Amino acid sequence: MSNVTADGERATSAGPVSRTLEFPGGSIQYFREGQGRPLLFLHAAGGAGVWHEFLERLSAGFDVVAPAHPGFGPSDELPEVEDIDDLVYHYIDVIDRLGLDRPHVVGGSFGGWVAAELAVAAPHKIGSLTLLGAVGLRIPEHPVTDLFFLKPHEIPPVLFSDLAKAAEMFPPGEPDIDTILAAYKDQTALARFGWVPFLNNPKLERRLKRITAPTLVAWAEKDALVPIEHGRRYAERIPGARFEVVDDCGHAMYFERPAEFADVVMGFLSGVSR
């Protein structure tokens, strides 16, 4: 059950209120919950429009803003946001319009790529950077697994180390039509931003030296989608970056081990705040 409030917010039976932000050609959906310094969370290719345990844990110490990227989940496909550069400037607009004063920026996988590009383009806009299993780099000897060519039954073991956890996100049996359409929408949006070249910007690595914010690069030990070498490369190229690995976990880290990854992120951010 849900109902729309007078100011366009959507109240849900669990979690925070879902809000919308208008842009030319449509709107995006976002959640906002918690108190303290602002934290902008940029989601992976999956999980758009979902308030999950990892975000709930972060909101215990921070003002968490979690938008759905244009074209993903409940957000509209904005015609002016055509590629990764446009997405970066979109989030600069989001930061300005929501009045987020140098937010901590936390990005997972595809969202980590966006977060890294944002920190390169506008280092003065962010207070810290956290990359969780981020794509975005081109390392030919350690390629990212191409999700577009995987069969449905091949996806869970690529994303999760614990297949019992995978079953919570990918329940057995045939998916219903709404699930199929939602997945198609997200994959279409992902292809729009990262098809060619595949989920990377060849220029990003040499630009990482522009990042001035304190940075945490956190990775899952058993990441079968984005090899851990990508995490090491990010940490090597970003000045002063800290690199941490969480054992016995797959790529969908904040779904598989939300408490552990929240502790890693909160520990880093508490140090930044001090």
Rank of each mutant, 00 (worst) to 15 (best):
F149T: 13
G112N: 14
A45F: 11
Q35S: 15
W51R: 11
K185T: 09
R57F: 01
D85L: 10
L181Y: 11
Y254C: 12
R233Y: 00
S161T: 10
D83H: 05
P143L: 02
L98P: 02
A218N: 00
Y30H: 07
G136N: 05
H104G: 02
D146N: 13
S2F: 12
V264D: 05
L150G: 01
K125Q: 12
A134H: 09
F31M: 06
A121Q: 14
A164K: 14
V50T: 12
H230K: 02
V50R: 15
M266W: 00
E260K: 11
G240F: 04
A66E: 01
G99V: 07
G111V: 06
Y184E: 14
I180Q: 14
T179P: 02
R233Q: 12
V217W: 02
G136P: 04
A60I: 00
E77N: 05
G194L: 10
D96S: 14
G194A: 15
L129W: 02
P156S: 08
R206T: 13
T130D: 03
Y184P: 00
I238K: 11
L131I: 06
T188E: 09
D83S: 05
V65A: 01
W195R: 14
W51I: 09
P172V: 03
R102P: 01
G49T: 02
E117Y: 03
I228D: 04
V158A: 11
T12G: 11
A220V: 01
S161R: 15
S273D: 15
R32G: 01
A119F: 03
N200C: 15
L147E: 00
G267D: 10
E260V: 02
I28R: 03
L40D: 08
S59H: 07
E141W: 00
F148D: 09
P38R: 07
D178W: 12
I28Q: 05
E168A: 14
S27P: 00
G111C: 12
G107S: 10
A14G: 00
S75Q: 07
D85K: 13
A262F: 08
A235M: 12
A183N: 12
G36P: 11
E260P: 04
P239Y: 09
F255D: 03
H124W: 14
R97E: 10
L269H: 09
I211A: 08
V245P: 01
R242T: 13
A11L: 15
Y30F: 15
L269N: 07
G34I: 11
R192I: 06
W219G: 01
M266N: 13
A14S: 13
E82C: 11
D176Y: 02
A48T: 05
E174A: 13
F160T: 03
W195T: 06
A44Y: 06
L118E: 04
D176H: 04
V196H: 13
V196Y: 13
R242C: 01
I211V: 15
F41V: 14
G25E: 05
F54Q: 00
V246S: 06
G127T: 05
V106G: 03
D76V: 07
E154F: 09
E154C: 08
K151D: 12
R37C: 00
G136V: 04
G107K: 10
I95E: 08
D223I: 04
H90M: 15
L208H: 09
Q35Y: 02
